[in-house]
Simulated scan of single mutants.
Amino acid sequence: MTGLGAVFRPQLPPERLRGVARAADRAGLEELWLWEDCFLESGIAAASAALAWTERLKVGVGLLPVPLRNVALTSMEAATMHRLFPDRVVLGVGHGVQEWMGQVGARVESPMTLLREYVTATRALLRGEKVSAQGRYVRLDEVALDWPPPVVAPVFAGASGPRSLRLTGEVADGTILDAAVPPEGVRRARELIAEGRETAGRTGHHPVTVYLHTATGHTAEARLRSELERAGQSGTPGLGVAGDAAEIARAVRRLAEAGADTVVLQPTADEPDPEGFVRFTAEAVGPLV
């Protein structure tokens, strides 16, 4: 069965999150996803608030930029959230937008090396291990969490290029793909992830979460077209969907058939009714997928 979620865009002010999260929870939405984009909103602070305001909603953060965050701090925050809200947290990490990382003096020479070291250390810390590491970027001296999650928490990683996708298969517990990936791109991503898992000798299922540009309502087509143009993605066939619940559900199913375990509907930055969008996702699209 395909999981279904929606994004709370950080272009909205933080004070709008409470209403959107509660609307999603009441409507029965499975997952609400947040972003930690510079210089908009904190992913951890926003996720913690959304979880506290709701009863059953699962909240994901995709992505936390690893050059910006010490690995021990992220692991402490992740462990705390998993203990406070068991089975309701999904955290993803990624390279971060390199321009933004440069703006804050955190850009690294090898994002791939950093992500490998970071995910490896984070997973070990969340397993309750005492970790020492002297990597190129991640350096820990007998660090262990006093309050690791009682159940091992998964660490997802975002990726787009072939090398990063193979890396997520090697070291992460799941992969997050952004909305620039059409169904054929999901199929290719699955192949690359599988190559990484084979290299690492890993078995079992590796979940993939995919964002989907989505617009509904009487201005849907124009808003989606503008969104894709702003993102420089208007020339990619099969990207995004504008229309009613049936049309959006068909787009979700196409991504699921290509290998997505969870599809997260990403509204346009100018979505006029964010609360209505999460209700629409849960109540109108959900039953069709």
Rank of each mutant, 00 (worst) to 15 (best):
T2W: 06
T2C: 11
G5S: 13
P13H: 13
P13S: 11
E15I: 12
L17F: 13
A24I: 08
A27I: 08
A27K: 08
L29P: 02
E30W: 13
W35A: 14
E36F: 13
E36C: 12
D37A: 14
F39D: 15
E41F: 02
I44L: 08
I44A: 07
I44T: 13
A45S: 12
A50N: 03
E55Y: 12
K58G: 14
V61S: 06
G62I: 10
G62L: 13
L63A: 14
P65T: 06
P65Y: 04
R69Q: 11
N70A: 15
A72M: 05
E77Y: 06
E77S: 14
A79S: 08
T80D: 11
M81G: 06
P86I: 15
V89I: 07
V93T: 09
G96E: 01
M101S: 14
G102I: 04
A106H: 10
A106Y: 07
V108D: 06
E109Q: 15
T113C: 04
L115S: 05
R116E: 09
T122E: 01
A124G: 08
K130V: 04
Q134R: 12
D141Y: 02
V143C: 00
P149I: 13
P149D: 07
P150V: 14
V151I: 14
V152N: 11
A153R: 03
A159Y: 02
G161D: 12
P162H: 04
R163K: 12
L165V: 09
L167A: 09
T168C: 10
T168N: 09
G169Y: 01
G169H: 01
E170F: 08
E170P: 10
E170T: 12
A172P: 03
D178A: 06
A179T: 04
V186T: 11
V186N: 01
A189P: 03
R190V: 08
E191W: 04
G196P: 02
R197K: 10
G201C: 07
T203Q: 12
T203K: 15
G204H: 09
V208Q: 03
V210T: 15
Y211S: 11
T219S: 09
A222Y: 05
L228Q: 13
E229L: 14
A231T: 05
S234M: 14
S234C: 10
G235A: 13
G238Y: 06
G238I: 09
A242S: 08
G243W: 02
A245H: 02
A246L: 09
E247L: 05
I248K: 01
R254P: 00
A260N: 11
V264K: 04
F280P: 01
T281V: 13
G286Q: 05
